[in-house]
Computed example of a mutant assay.
Amino acid sequence: MLLLFSSPTFADDKIYEGHYTYGDEVSIFKACGKDKVYWLAVSGFVFSDVKVLALASDEPYMPVYLKFRGHEHFEEVDGYQAKYDFQIHVSEVKKFSKKIPVFCK
C-alpha cells in the first residue's frame, strides 16, 4: 500500500474505502458494505499509481481496494458518467492494494 500526493482539501471531504474498478471508459467506486456505485473523478498525478495497479490484473476490470479522501461532486455529465447518481472527486489517496481486505468484501 502506498500514500500518494494529494490535491486541495475541500470542506466537505470525507474518507471513503471500498472497491475501485478502472478500465476502458470505466472509473467506478463501490464503498465497503454499500450497494451504490459511483463514478470516481480523479486527477492524473493523484491517481496514476492506482490506475496502474488496477490495469495490472490478469483479468480486465478486476476491482482493487482503495481508501481515499474526497467529496461528492454534483456536475451535469454525459456519456458513461451519466449512468451514476453522482461523482466522487478524489482529493487524496490514503491506501490502495490489489488485495481487498476481508472486512470490505
Rank of each mutant, 00 (worst) to 15 (best):
M1T: 09
L2S: 12
L2A: 13
L3K: 08
L3W: 01
L3I: 08
F5K: 11
F5Q: 12
S7A: 13
S7G: 14
S7I: 02
S7D: 14
P8A: 10
P8L: 10
T9S: 11
F10Q: 10
A11C: 05
D13L: 05
D13Q: 07
D13N: 12
K14Q: 15
K14W: 00
I15K: 06
Y16S: 06
E17Q: 14
H19G: 03
H19E: 11
H19Q: 14
T21N: 10
T21F: 07
T21K: 09
T21P: 09
Y22F: 15
Y22S: 14
G23L: 11
G23A: 12
G23I: 06
D24F: 14
V26Y: 04
V26E: 12
I28W: 01
I28R: 10
F29G: 10
F29K: 08
K30P: 01
K30V: 02
K30T: 13
A31W: 00
C32P: 02
C32Q: 02
G33Q: 04
G33C: 08
K34T: 08
K36A: 15
K36N: 14
V37T: 15
V37E: 13
V37K: 10
V37L: 05
V37F: 02
Y38H: 09
Y38E: 05
L40V: 07
L40I: 09
L40W: 01
G44T: 11
G44N: 12
F45Q: 12
V46C: 07
V46P: 00
F47N: 13
S48C: 03
D49Y: 01
D49T: 02
V52C: 02
V52G: 00
V52R: 14
L55A: 11
S57C: 05
D58T: 09
P60C: 12
Y61L: 15
Y61P: 09
V64S: 03
V64W: 00
V64H: 01
K67H: 02
F68R: 03
R69L: 13
G70S: 10
H71T: 04
E72H: 11
H73S: 15
H73R: 13
F74S: 12
E75H: 04
E75Y: 03
E76D: 12
E76C: 01
G79E: 04
G79P: 05
Y80H: 08
Y80G: 08
K83C: 04
Y84D: 07
D85F: 03
I88R: 03
H89V: 09
H89N: 06
V90A: 13
V90L: 06
S91T: 14
S91C: 06
E92P: 01
E92H: 14
V93L: 09
K94E: 13
K95H: 10
K95S: 12
F96V: 04
F96N: 05
F96E: 06
F96M: 08
S97D: 15
S97A: 11
K98Q: 11
K99R: 07
K99Y: 02
I100A: 04
V102C: 00
V102G: 00
C104K: 02
K105A: 04
K105V: 01
